[in-house]
Amino acid sequence: MHPAFQAILTIIIGVGGCVGYFYFSNQFLDKVVFPSRGPNAGRNITRANMVRPWLFLFPALAALSIYLAYPVVETLRLSLTERLPGNRSQFVGFANYQQMLSEAKFKEALLNNLLWLVVVPAFSTAFGLLAAQLSDRVRWGNIAKSLIFMPMAISFVGAAVIWKLVYDTRPIDQEQIGALNALYLFFGGDAPVTWMTQIPWNSFLLMAVLVWIQTGFAMVILSAALRGIPEETIEAAIVDGANPFQVFFKIKVPQIMSTIVVVWTTITIVVLKVFDIVFAMTNGQWETQVLANYMYDKLFRANDWGVGSASAMVIMLLVSPILIWNVYNARKEMQ
């Protein structure tokens, strides 16, 4: 079968099944289980309305619990066990964690990840803020924003290819086709550098890719926040004699601090999950390993589920402060 046909067929089945579920389950509830006719009509309707929310929620709840909630628990369990031949497993306590902590590669990944956690959100937010502020002041700002925002649509893998070209290295006697080396030589470098092997610069060059992608996101959100600042506060500051920089840092930035925090944490989460860029560009060689790629290595190359799961739990541990904070805020809002 032609792949396009197969695609269309599967799409129809998948989507149709979904629509069918909602339609027929509602019909079933109203016509068969609690018919809204006859002597008990009133009571039946009330009962049907008590069941209906769960009908609407069921597929979502099922998917959420199977695909997100259960794995958290199961990963925790796996991280405390060891696989034995024949599909059996054995409880080993914290042995996996101990083994992981003793591995140099893990320490490298953890340290790198911490570095990523500082550098990427900081630069993305700073550049995003800069772009937002600049583009709100010129007439072609929307075009500028759209172009800076564009990398958001590009896959990490695509971005990896794009940047590999930038970082490309040719032998010294040939013309450089990578922009970075061309610039380096232009500004007086003596020999082209194989950037991907230069410790520690290579890690920063990988981070640059993510900063390049995330800046647009930060810019869009911060630009909306900047525009939400009451104009009067800015005018008051100008009348008080503040210069543009003072207006920006003393009046505007404090007022959008909460948005900056949101942007920062959102990018933090992205960073913790970053996998594709490292996987595609260096695959963790030359001391560029990060947790997500380390975990992938353990799970699918070394086939070590115990240590792999343990490292996944480390990622979970790192996001949980954000998780708790979000839930806390959401609950507060619902009051």
């Binding site: 929310p53 929620l57 709840l61 959420l64 199977i66 695909y67 997100l68 909630a69 259960y70 794995p71 958290v72 199961e74 990963t75 796996l78 989460i269 913790l272 999950k273 996998f275 997500a292 975990m295 992938y296 799970l299 589920w305 792999g308 799961s309 996944a312 739990m313 990622i315 979970m316 996001v319 954000i322 998780l323 979000n326 839930v327 805020n329 959401a330 609950r331 619902m334």
Partner: peptide, 23 residues
């Protein structure tokens, strides 16, 4: 209802890495 909403917010940040092996 409120509890479910909070749960959804919590799951928002669960890294999908955790789900690989169990799933």
């Amino acid at each position: 209802r409120a509890l479910l909403v909070a749960a959804v917010v919590g799951l928002l940040v669960v890294p999908l890495q955790l789900a690989l092996i169990p799933l």
